[in-house]
Design a protein around this nucleic acid. Structure first.
Lengths: 165, 165
DNA sequence: TAATTAATGAAAATGATTGTCATTAACAAT
DNA sequence: ATTGTTAATGACAATCATTTTCATTAATTA
């Protein structure tokens, strides 16, 4: 496929190239159409997409992009900290753009270990940010980590599952 | 196999039957040797065991117990909240006895998204405990969950991976 | 002790993810 | 703009953790 009219403009947000251009080039990675398409999909949703979800979405616009490439790109994005990969115990990994804990869409999960139901919650975020900032600071110093994101999940039983058996 | 001398006493801790007897019977589940053996293994380690890890350990004493049963038992234990299942992104689920957030061995993880290295940390600042307590209270009320445990993981790049590429 | 039925184990099936390898296309140098 | 270099891709096969199937066994009840 060739660049030009007819092809959707990727990552447009009204002002120049998307922020990930720099990141890619800076690391010496090539900025390919599949990679852009995948980042584009991720940047336009707040869902927790699996590799196949992404494949299907990307496939609508670029039918030539294969599932293998999706997996490889996701791995690359995780490695560079550009996306965040997590798991709810349903056997498939989920992904979201890691804009960091300060971003608008930041949330955590309440997972029912009985039926697998997931509740997103955004309560308590303010206090959380301050606490995490300090924890992060301590940990990154002590263990020499550059911390990029965090995951908080509460596990328990939802109403239905509490009354089972 | 028959109960009696020669067979290791399961779950011994110096005083009567292990705590999980009640839990099992109360739910109408049968207390079988495989289940006891698996709980016994879990109760004697602080490691994050995979299904196969558990299978291998159990297998030393009870070679007849199959991997399938380990999977089935782990599922049951997760369902009833007796164990906690989590994932570090290496493709296999890990398990630990969920004695709850107040127990001695309670810890969280620092995960390097570059190389998969895991660091356990137990440095909790007081505020963390307080924040979690309040969050738990709020969420369990708001969403009608009985919260049993929580998971906090920080993701980032370890020293080595920061300097890659 | 026998009857009932949940629990088990072996083997096959599933399904997400990863490896292989010939082909394509980004980017740098011209 | 064209070409050369080599990373990136896509189709397909392979892997491997987990589930399903089904005939057998054993924990509890009558």
């Amino acid at each position: 496929m060739r660049k030009g009219e007819g092809m959707p403009v990727l990552g447009r947000n009204g002002m120049g190239p998307p922020w990930w251009h720099r990141k890619f080039r800076g690391c010496g990675y090539r900025l390919t159409i599949p990679r852009q398409a995948i980042l584009d999909v991720l940047s336009k949703t707040t869902e927790h997409l699996s590799a196949e979800d992404i494949y299907l979405k990307v496939h609508k616009t670029y039918p030539a992009i294969g599932l293998t490439t999706v997996y490889r790109t996701l791995e690359l994005l995780v490695q560079t900290g550009m996306i965040f990969k997590f798991d709810f115990g349903d056997g498939r990994a989920r992904h979201e753009l890691s804009e960091g804990p300060k971003s608008i869409g930041h949330h955590h999960h309440l997972v029912c270990t009985g039926c697998g139901r997931i509740v997103d919650y955004t309560d308590f975020i303010d206090e959380e940010i301050e606490l995490l900032r300090r924890t992060e600071e301590g940990l990154s110093k002590k263990y020499n980590f550059r911390i990029i994101n965090h995951l908080i999940q509460f596990y328990g039983l939802c109403e239905k599952c509490q009354n089972k058996k």
